Amino acid sequence: MRASKPITVTLGKQQRSVDERLESGAYNSASEVIRAGLRALDREEEALNAILREKIREALDEPGPDVPAVEVFERLELRHAERMKSLRS
């Protein structure tokens, strides 16, 4: 029994990217290209998650004073309002 099952994927503009990789000889099949792309996506997500975990760890370890959520949201709303105003000008 197969460990994986065949699927149908519509690539649209990405089809050209698959075709170029096949024509270059770097890959033997569209399946290889897609699997390589998924492995790259997995690596990217793992790297981003590691960065986010580190940022969270740094924030939790920071000795600075806590800022009440109400104050944080007030600052964000003010910043957003200022940006919207500058876009309208």
Rank of each mutant, 00 (worst) to 15 (best):
R2E: 11
A3G: 15
A3H: 03
A3P: 10
S4P: 09
P6L: 04
P6V: 05
I7V: 15
T8K: 08
T8R: 04
T8D: 06
V9L: 10
L11I: 00
G12E: 08
K13A: 15
Q15W: 11
R16I: 11
S17A: 15
S17E: 15
E20H: 03
E20P: 00
R21Q: 14
R21D: 10
L22Q: 09
E23P: 06
S24H: 09
G25Q: 05
A26N: 08
Y27T: 02
Y27Q: 10
N28I: 04
N28P: 02
N28Q: 14
S29K: 00
S29W: 10
A30F: 04
E32P: 11
E32N: 03
R35E: 07
R35H: 04
A36C: 08
A36I: 00
R39I: 00
D42Q: 05
D42K: 04
R43E: 14
E45S: 03
E46F: 02
A47K: 00
L48W: 01
L48C: 02
L48R: 09
N49D: 13
A50R: 06
I51H: 04
I51Q: 12
I51T: 13
I51W: 05
I51N: 10
L52P: 09
L52R: 04
R53V: 01
R53I: 09
E54P: 06
I56V: 14
I56H: 07
I56P: 06
R57N: 03
A59R: 09
L60A: 11
L60S: 10
L60G: 09
D61N: 14
D61H: 07
P63N: 13
P65D: 15
D66K: 04
V67M: 04
V67C: 03
P68F: 07
A69Y: 13
A69R: 13
V70N: 12
V72G: 07
F73N: 11
R75D: 02
L78M: 12
H80C: 12
M84Y: 07
S86L: 02
L87V: 11
L87W: 02
L87A: 05
R88G: 01
S89H: 14
S89N: 15
